[in-house]
């Protein structure tokens, strides 16, 4: 038996515990994010995994067995480590943004776009993420306003061209989000107030959805100085595997993936990491 130990971290169940309906999990046409994660946890336990409520504060990868230090003071030594620490969407930090998260404010167009069929929405940002999200959201929304602080985008030229040609997208230059405006009963977004960065003039834009698309940050703190990273801090794995630059350390999910960032792709990579770790142990500890 491999008898894995899983350390949960500060957010047991991960990002899906912060959302409501998940509509693209195979076998469930609709499932609540927290319920899905409880089922996954129960499944892991039933298969003999020990799940521990602790946070890893340090990981020594210089020699095998690897040594992880828990916030509790517990030291975990392991012949192989699977890193699945995920990623976080970057937020603007406005109180009104926080208040309407999950009720009209989102950082994931693929996850929440279909809620806005035929409605007007805004996207905040000017990089690849923002332009990709804006383009994707035109599949559902009647109009997408892209709000950006400058008068030019940081996104790749090809994406910019597609954005400019799309009749459903209207860029609003030199503006930044000041406030999300909404109702409490039922809770939902009604508009955003945006400020012109030079004149300070405030404009209100009616909308039902606000997509904050200012990037993602992988949770790479434990390994950022020891593992090879790419694309702004995502852990680099060998193509078609979960092997990192240190033998015996594997990485899966949003920590390695700046492209797909979905529950099902993360779970798929988790499966790959387990099989890769098992193979590694069989080869090295036989």
């Amino acid at each position: 038996m491999l008898n894995p130990i899983l350390v949960q971290g500060i957010e047991p169940g991960g990002q899906l515990t912060t959302t409501t309906e998940v509509e693209n999990w195979p076998g469930d046409s609709e499932v609540q994010g927290p319920d899905l994660m409880i089922r996954m946890q129960d499944h892991a336990k039933a298969m003999g995994c020990e799940i521990i409520g602790d946070i890893i504060t340090n990981l020594d990868t210089s020699k095998r067995p690897f040594t992880a230090t828990g916030d509790s003071g517990t030291i975990y030594t392991a012949d192989a480590v699977i890193l699945a620490t995920g990623a976080r969407a970057k937020w603007l930090g406005l109180p009104s943004e926080e208040a309407f998260k999950g009720f009209g404010v989102s950082a994931c167009a693929t996850c929440d776009g279909f809620f806005y069929r035929g409605q007007e929405i805004v996207v905040i940002g000017g990089g690849n993420t923002a332009v990709e999200e804006a383009l994707f959201l035109t599949n559902f929304a009647s109009k997408v306003t892209l709000i950006h602080r400058r008068d030019e985008l940081r996104a790749e030229k090809i994406l910019q061209d597609r954005l400019m040609k799309n009749p459903k997208i209207e860029p609003l230059w030199f503006h930044q989000l000041e406030e999300v405006v909404g109702e409490d009963n039922p809770k939902g977004v009604e508009a955003v107030r945006v400020k012109h960065v030079e004149t300070g003039e405030i404009t209100e834009i009616p909308c039902k959805g606000v997509f904050v698309a200012i990037g993602h940050a992988p949770a790479n703190e434990l390994v950022k100085d020891v593992l090879e990273l790419h694309n702004g801090g995502y852990v680099k794995v060998e193509a078609g595997s979960t092997r990192t630059s240190i033998p015996g350390i594997f990485a899966a999910g949003d920590l390695t993936d700046h492209v797909y960032r979905q529950a099902v792709t993360s779970a798929g990579m988790g499966c790959m990491a387990a099989l890769d770790a098992e193979k590694f142990l069989a080869e090295h500890d036989a």
Binding site: V7, I51, V81, A252, G270
Partner: peptide, 12 residues
Amino acid sequence: TKVLIIGSGPAG
């Protein structure tokens, strides 16, 4: 442990 998994999202 033989395998330590850090993180309790879908991947972990």
